[in-house]
């Protein structure tokens, strides 16, 4: 049924991705592909994998952006997968009921046996979270590793999404974002976690944590962009001038 759940559970499982920590190693991308190729749905196929113009379905991609101001430039690695939106437009547009949002934990899934491969859900998703499988011709998307997180055959530490388990830097956290006291919710509060494209009104469950302000950026920023700091400098010169500026830096 592609209506969104009328009485969804308060539980909203999702990811918190720390853009301050991610180094763009693509390990999460590779492990995602590996796990989901061997999991319940059709394998994530590749076409012409070793030739020119290879293509394939992946559920997790890492973009790398450059964020610039007049005086600074910073590289941000940006992992992107399904955000399991509360108001998921990909679910409501589905004509067959193949695309659905689970009542019990909010995970957005595709029933591949019912998918007609029309692609409209991918058109409705602003994040590019859905990709058509080039061989199976059905829509593939992140399942939040629903076949891991509840899997009692796995050791407990493995009952998290493959991307989270494999991240060597700990840039990805998994948990219940519907519970304000959960570790992930606290992390989001403490670090000022944000939504992607809030203007698209999808209410994503996954949150992103901003890169922390870099110290050398702060220094160069102040020097070049704050006229007050410059004008107050010539007050005292020499040793006392150094003391003055050192104390100013401490406070």
């Amino acid at each position: 049924m592609t209506m969104l759940p009328e009485n969804p559970s308060a539980k909203k499982l999702g990811l918190v991705i720390d853009l301050d920590i991610c180094v763009g190693c693509h390990a999460c991308v590779v492990n995602c592909k590996e796990w989901n190729t061997g999991s319940e749905g059709a394998p994530l196929s590749d076409v012409n994998a070793y030739g020119a113009q290879q293509t394939g379905a992946w559920l997790n991609r890492i973009h790398t952006f450059e964020v610039t101001t007049d005086s600074t430039a910073q590289v941000v690695h940006f992992p992107k997968s399904c955000l399991h939106c509360t108001d998921a437009p990909c679910v409501t547009v589905c004509p067959t009921g193949a695309s659905y949002k689970r009542v019990e934990d909010g995970i957005v899934l595709v029933n591949e046996d019912h998918c007609i491969g029309c692609g409209l859900c991918a058109w409705a998703c602003p994040y590019g979270a859905r990709e058509m499988d080039p061989v199976e011709q059905v829509m593939k998307k992140c399942t939040l590793c629903v076949d891991r997180i509840y899997n009692e055959n796995l050791p407990e530490e493995d009952r998290v999404p493959a991307c989270v388990r494999t991240c060597p830097t700990g840039a990805r956290a998994f948990g219940d974002l519907g519970d304000p006291d959960s570790d992930v919710s606290q992390l989001v509060r403490e670090r000022g976690g944000f939504d992607l494209m809030p203007e698209q009104q999808t209410s994503p469950v996954n949150k992103y944590l901003p890169p922390r302000e870099k110290r050398h950026l702060i220094a160069s920023d102040r020097a070049s962009t704050e006229p007050e700091a410059n004008s107050s400098k010539p007050d005292v010169e020499g040793f006392w001038g150094w003391v003055d500026s050192a104390l100013a830096k401490l406070s």
Binding site: T55, W58, H63, T64, T68, K80, P210
Partner: peptide, 25 residues
Amino acid sequence: ETATGLGSMGQVDLLMAPHTEENWL
């Protein structure tokens, strides 16, 4: 800027695509 949520830090431009070839999207 809104797509990455990084607008408060500055102007956002793609530095490296996630892959070398065009994907389905």
